[in-house]
Design a protein around this nucleic acid. Sequence first.
DNA 1: CGTGATATTGAAAGGTCTCAACAGGAGTGG
DNA 2: CCACTCCTGTTGAGACCTTTCAATATCACG
Lengths: 238, 238
Amino acid sequence: MDVARSEVLVIGTSVACRSCQARHGVVCGALSAGQLSELGRHSLRRKVDAGCEIIAQGSENSFYSNITRGVVKLCKVMSDGRQQIVGLQFAPDFVGRPFVRESTLSAEAATDAEICVFPRNLLERMILETRELQRSLHAQALNELDAAREWMLTLGRRTAEEKVASLLHLIAAHAETATSTAIDLPLSRAEIADFLGLTIETVSRQLTRLRKEGVIRIENIRHITVPDMDALAKKISG
Amino acid sequence: MDVARSEVLVIGTSVACRSCQARHGVVCGALSAGQLSELGRHSLRRKVDAGCEIIAQGSENSFYSNITRGVVKLCKVMSDGRQQIVGLQFAPDFVGRPFVRESTLSAEAATDAEICVFPRNLLERMILETRELQRSLHAQALNELDAAREWMLTLGRRTAEEKVASLLHLIAAHAETATSTAIDLPLSRAEIADFLGLTIETVSRQLTRLRKEGVIRIENIRHITVPDMDALAKKISG
DNA sequence: CGTGATATTGAAAGGTCTCAACAGGAGTGG
DNA sequence: CCACTCCTGTTGAGACCTTTCAATATCACG
């Protein structure tokens, strides 16, 4: 965590875009070939280690980025240190808040990740020029809003066990192989606690509880398998 | 609550628009004079009593509306009856989710309110035609997203006393007279509990606690005054 | 002045947190 | 290769906060 660093890999080009996870994502999928090429010429691929901060809470937004690999957590911290993860973003999500000066939250790589960084002015110009891009960003904002409100229900009204089950369900839903029931946790126990509004001890206890109930198998700290996804879903009341 | 009803008052016209709270709000402020007139000709003013449901969770979106008076709560309910208010909307906010078939939450008048109802097809056409309208709706979505995430911090990490103080602070921030410290609660104790992820008893206890500490005065059930707004803010850890 | 709905208050139960000890794994150096 | 250390995660016991259940109070309304 303390040695987390980021490294600029290559200058993005149209060539690099062709095989990019985010090529048909929120931003790039909304651009014309010409725009994509222009954006590509001015973009940078950055490799960010787990724990590396991409955007700091309260900092000025000077760039935007696409997640091309890995998971990014959006985090709010209080002055006394309490903190809450308010969103998880997966490739090929867009990260940043165009036309807004200051970020109200921090974005940090949860896993080793790769992002494609766009200069602020260029992207803002393209948004103004391209209806489809604006529509696409609007759609992502609405999806994030739905996710945030769904999570508010979890934070406010679900028990610790339901919360943990909800998280596993959420992550399973984002796993690439939909049929597979093997879950790669992108978060440490402390991060799970910060996402669920619990302590790490409670998270740990609820995980072992789900294990003893036979709902999950804990292969190791970061790998969990779900023999019966319906049984997991039943742990999450409606 | 059980006798809540809604009543169509008048057909909106350009004349009615002139004195409307929402005239320069999210939707109407983004339209040209011609568009405003067209929208006005096809809109209805509806008066909705407190407790009246405007949009039902799981229902089809067949119309959209502007709040022209009062407060609307956005609510999610679980199959076992637990429920969570995931947002409060004040005049002149826009209510609804264009281009989405089914609502994932319910919208209900918290106070007696008035809304201006737009037909689905017309508004969706205008959004497609009018960049400024889309931009404006995008901006509201982002504001709601920020509010939702801020509230996630409250739900996940604040104590009961901090939660109640946060709610009072939120409502005071939306009060028309900024200098006044008199708060008109738009919510019952049960609704406050559903917004804060608490029980009504805990809400009640925390309110009397704040009263005994001298932070608030409870004039009556729906009216609270805050002698020292800074003292209230201090109850909400950063 | 009853009546019902909403709100407050009290006492006990329960869930989550706090504090503390222990376990497991990765990396390091002997 | 093994001991050592550090870090993360697990488990236990007791405390604390919030909930639950119950009784009482307050207010609007007929």
